[in-house]
């Protein structure tokens, strides 16, 4: 086990650090963008694992097979990036943690920014052979609808909805607080500096001892970003409700909303 401090520094990896390790065989860079985007150009030495394909079959066994075929073993340091403000990459990071791969980081900038900074890109496909990876499910970081439902009235649990404000006002899981995902980014990085992230949760009285469950619209990407934001400032007990609000509605669970106001009409088209 890593110490807590190492874990924190691990959540994101600085682009400069990645540059210095980019040809390192013990590091595996995963691009979660579409196959088409990847084939045009990508970070030098990265492999492609389109998140949307993964989500269509995110069984743990399937993911293990995929990462084994990318030459990832239990010790490989995996770095994930996307071009969607870190949300898609965050979801893969969570999936890797879920199947027991703890040595994983988010690249701290988006692909566009990487390009803008003039760092290494190319369109070469790389093959790192096949490695063996163990499967060690970490159920502590997953929330199902049933689990969440039991926690709604639990004083020690904070449910965080990461959708945009209007969606939240219209309907949300009872007891949830709203922290729109756009709060987390800084102008150049996918996550704000840790002191600023701390402030967001502090001002909302979210305690480090609390159990946190994050959710968003449908697939746990926006809330995946929140998951990583929380981990990056040392929150230990964080769970992602992967199937999020879409499933909650399908299951016809109780929904809360802000009544008696036509807030949607305030938004411009």
């Amino acid at each position: 086990m890593c110490s807590l401090k190492e874990n924190i520094s691990h959540v994101t990896l600085n682009a400069d650090t990645l540059i210095s390790k980019i040809n390192d065989r013990d590091i595996r860079i995963i691009d979660v963008r579409s196959r088409k985007d990847y084939s045009q150009h990508h970070i030098h030495n990265s492999v492609n694992l389109p998140l949307l394909e993964l989500l269509s079959n995110d069984s743990p066994g399937h993911l293990i097979k995929l990462i084994q075929s990318m030459g990832i073993s239990d010790d490989t340091h995996v770095v994930v990036y996307d071009n969607t403000f870190g949300a898609l990459a965050s979801r893969l990071v969570w999936n890797l943690l879920y199947v027991g791969h703890n040595n994983v980081s988010l690249l701290d900038i988006t692909y566009d920014n990487w390009k803008l900074l003039g760092y290494d890109i190319d369109s070469k496909n790389v093959n790192f052979g096949t490695k063996i990876h163990t499967l060690n499910i970490n159920n502590n970081i997953l929330s199902t609808a049933e689990y969440l439902e039991k926690k709604i009235n639990d004083d020690n649990t904070v449910i965080i909805d990461n959708r945009e404000r209007l969606n939240f006002l219209e309907q949300h899981i009872p007891g949830a607080i709203n922290i729109p995902y756009k709060i987390f980014a800084s102008p150049n990085k996918i996550l704000k500096p840790t002191n600023e992230l701390e402030k967001i949760f502090e001002s909302r009285y979210v305690d480090h001892d609390a159990e946190i469950i994050t959710y968003c619209g449908s697939s746990g990407t926006l809330s995946g970003l929140a998951y990583n934001a929380l981990k990056s400032i040392g929150f230990e007990n964080v769970k992602l409700y992967t199937h999020s609000f879409k499933e909650w509605k399908q299951l016809q669970k109780t929904i809360a909303k802000q009544d008696d106001a036509n807030y949607w009409d305030l938004s411009a088209e």
Binding site: E164, R165, L166, P180, K182, I183, Y263, L266, S267, A268
Partner: peptide, 10 residues
């Protein structure tokens, strides 16, 4: 507006 409000200003 993006971070703290409704993505629109008035």
């Amino acid at each position: 507006s993006d971070s703290f409000s409704i993505g629109s200003a008035h």
